[in-house]
Nucleic acid binder design. Structure first.
Lengths: 152, 152
DNA sequence: CAGAACTTCTGGACTCAGTCAAGAGTTTGA
DNA sequence: TCAAACTCTTGACTGAGTCCAGAAGTTCTG
């Protein structure tokens, strides 16, 4: 949880491809070129929108339909292989860091998004004061502010 | 922080109307019947969507345009008289509890939303580990889970 | 390695939340 | 009271995301 952020795009990598394939299979999803390309794109471009991911995938494998991108992103998010975040006023964005309880810092001016490690330890934010009988599985934290550029 | 939630709708109340008017004036906004009705509606129906608020206001004052509702909600949120929240997969929702650093508990099944007081004290969540030079003004926390009804 | 069964992809139409623009109407402050 | 400034209405529009049905691809069984 205090690991480095690993935000830099990662090179196309056979070992990673392999791992993507294993992730798909062990989640009961079929393995297709489109899905592998989408997973690679999410890893390469963290916080990208569905549209941006579509662009990236088209550059990589030639063509893909919008529907296939939405279907795949939805399926991957369902299986918790990727995470969907949706700041107010912005289309949904996707990232591959899952299960490490990190949060996001969003600029009110330019919508720039940064990852932030949890300030208060391991999974403190999962401890709600009164859970109303809910079975809580995730706490999503978004910090709002202005980035250095937009403060001027 | 262990107070009751005060989520039950409040009756139409001249004293509250008065206060709405003062809030508008001191924020430099003009006072109109539409705006008062919208503020009342946000108070009466916490976590309502723009569309639901439009319905409530129409019941109250006869008619209002969708645009007026969006303009007013935007202006009120700008002035921090109300707060806009937008859980993933749901249209924007509005509430009148501002400035008390409370959070939200959302059901993945039925989208039911509860208010939750901050678990960790006053404004702990405004303390990000690394602020990347941002000027942070708000931390938004959403707990995701399943309500008692949807767990079955 | 074939064929069947199942899953995924494509393309197009569609829905829904929200925005833009221009003109009419209302509120405010001198 | 009157002009300036602000707000509301109407209607068209945008952009993200969904629905549908048929075509194509993948996996399983023998």
């Amino acid at each position: 949880m205090t690991d480095a952020l690993e935000q830099e795009p990662q090179a196309h990598d056979p070992i990673e491809q392999q791992s993507f394939e294993q992730q798909l299979r062990s989640s009961g999803l079929q393995v297709t070129a489109q899905r592998l390309a989408i997973m690679q794109a999410v890893t390469d471009g963290p916080h990208a929108t569905a549209e941006e991911l579509t662009e990236i995938v088209r550059d990589k494998i030639g063509s893909i339909s919008r529907q296939a991108v939405y279907d795949t992103l939805g399926a991957l998010a369902d299986k918790r292989l990727i995470r969907r975040i949706q700041p107010t006023g912005s289309p949904a964005r996707f990232e591959d860091r899952v299960g490490d309880n990190h949060h996001h810092l969003v600029c009110r001016g330019c919508s720039l998004i940064f990852d932030i490690d949890c300030a208060v330890g391991t999974t403190p934010c999962l401890t709600a004061d009164d859970d109303h009988g809910f079975e809580i599985d995730e706490a999503e934290v978004v910090y709002w502010g202005r980035c250095p550029d937009c403060r001027t």
